[in-house]
Design a protein around this nucleic acid. Structure first.
Lengths: 273, 273
DNA sequence: CGCTCGGTTGAGACGGTTCAAGACGTGTGG
DNA sequence: CCACACGTCTTGAACCGTCTCAACCGAGCG
């Protein structure tokens, strides 16, 4: 017997942990049902490879819990982390044969997966799905370019500060209220962090402990900090506060160039004022 | 009188210089006609701003000739070039309020422009157009991540070599035949090049002249070189040949990990062997 | 308990930046 | 046609931020 629309059977997705925030919830219910039918969960343990570099992408999906890292490597072993994927983020390269980067579990993870070809066929039937993917891809592109700025011309203290602030926004749905102290949990190893920031574990260590010495953060243990002086952390990041903007771009709430003032010619500083 | 399909009137686009390679030619003729109706040309001189950072994107379009640079800047004046756009490349941020980088003319340019909102409405009517945009965006994302690898963990000689090879692929439709010597024309200033590579003009100068001393390239003048030893240039880039792959990804023609061999632990070298 | 592994700390070396001076090329005006 | 000036590129020397290497520390675990 066909259930009435408002009585339709619950899909497993309805109680999914990332239901509210993931791409699949931003499309209409027919499509949601099709997606639900196509999906299956997979789990990986820290360090396991989800999709290897230069391998045909067989599936794509959404991070339910844990953190994925996207990383590229040179033949001599040097590696660069080109992105982190947190819960409710979409992963996998659609519409292309090979992915140029490996996707690996940076922690234990649970993924909600779709067979790639089947997913792509769905985008053909539902332009709405492709549109959501498009918005997602554009955001990733903005983020990648933002990181290029960081890698290309920021100092280590600036990079680490930016990274911590990024974790505040994307890591876990914490408080981040105006005045409150904030606790940060590093979900990845020093090595991953170093690779993401284009530096070494040693340098990160030094910067973090220097930040602690200056009372900007408090180190609870190697992967748990507390932000004691948010304003100074933002200042140290060398960016406008807006790194702290919510995922949904608040339309033009930024103050464009109010501090454009001090142009070039400053001597290089340590990043610690 | 309605012209027969095969006799339809020529649009200005039919004799467009980038007709064969641009996004607008990869969609069906109805859509092409709509696009043609919407388009208008604009010209900018070297150094002029096409779209400012943090400004609402009023139009998008395609580069007909010349080179655009996308760049981000910090408040203290440091700048990072996050992408170059050559002829037939699409520019402008669709589906978003503000672009977070400036688009400027890195040479004199001619652009074929579409009012942004009108263009977006067209994507709603023609999913095909959105799909082409999507493919384009995915390519840009791949390129951005590739550049992150370069900025995050490659030496100056590697960066410069990679840049020169990139110019071979994307700059002008030159020869690049297997054995032939190749001439490269730098379409941008040293400063732009430095900003793209995350370094300074001085460092670039030194690397280029060292390359010349080693007989890898011949310097005709500050912006014209000849590649004398392509193989060594590729080797110096620290990447697999594939930087030289054509825009259309040749399916899995790469040899995946044949040289994965020599993993970590190599002492840091100058990049010149 | 001792091993291992990730993170921390210190000392020294090195690549790349900075600053300053010089060369080159190009356009202008006498 | 040359003199001059200006911007861009080149070259040199000193400095400094970050990497490298090596030792050390502490937590987790068989």
């Amino acid at each position: 017997m066909e259930p009435l629309p408002f009585l339709r059977a619950l899909t497993p997705c309805d109680r999914c942990a990332v239901r509210k925030t993931s791409l699949c919830s931003r499309v209409n219910v027919d499509l949601q049902r099709d997606l639900a039918r196509l999906s299956h969960h997979r789990t990986y343990r820290l360090g396991e490879t989800v999709l290897a570099e230069m391998e045909a992408t067989s599936f794509v999906g959404i991070v339910v819990s844990g953190v994925l890292r996207m990383q590229k490597s040179l033949e001599d072993g040097r590696q660069q982390l080109v992105g982190l994927l947190f819960r409710s983020d979409f992963f996998g390269r659609v519409f292309g044969g090979l992915s140029d980067y490996a996707i690996e579990a940076a922690s234990d993870v649970i993924l909600c997966c779709y067979e790639r070809r089947a997913f792509e066929r769905l985008t053909e039937r539902f332009p709405e799905l492709e549109h959501q993917l498009m918005l997602n891809t554009l955001d990733e592109l903005d983020a990648a370019r933002d990181w290029m700025l960081l890698l290309g011309c920021q100092t280590m203290p600036e990079r680490v500060a930016s990274f911590l602030l990024m974790l505040c926004r994307r890591g876990e749905p914490d408080e981040w209220v105006s005045g409150a102290n904030l606790s940060i949990h590093l979900p990845i190893s020093r090595r991953d962090m170093a690779s993401y920031l284009g530096t070494t574990g040693e340098s990160i260590s030094r910067v973090i402990h220097e930040m602690s010495r200056r009372g900007i953060i408090k180190i609870r243990n190697a992967q748990d900090f507390e932000i004691l002086n948010k304003r100074q952390l933002v200042r140290m990041s060398g960016r406008d506060d807006l790194s702290i903007r919510p995922a949904i771009a608040a339309q033009s709430s930024r103050s464009p160039y109010e501090r454009l003032a001090a142009a070039n010619g400053l001597p290089r500083s340590t990043g610690f004022h």
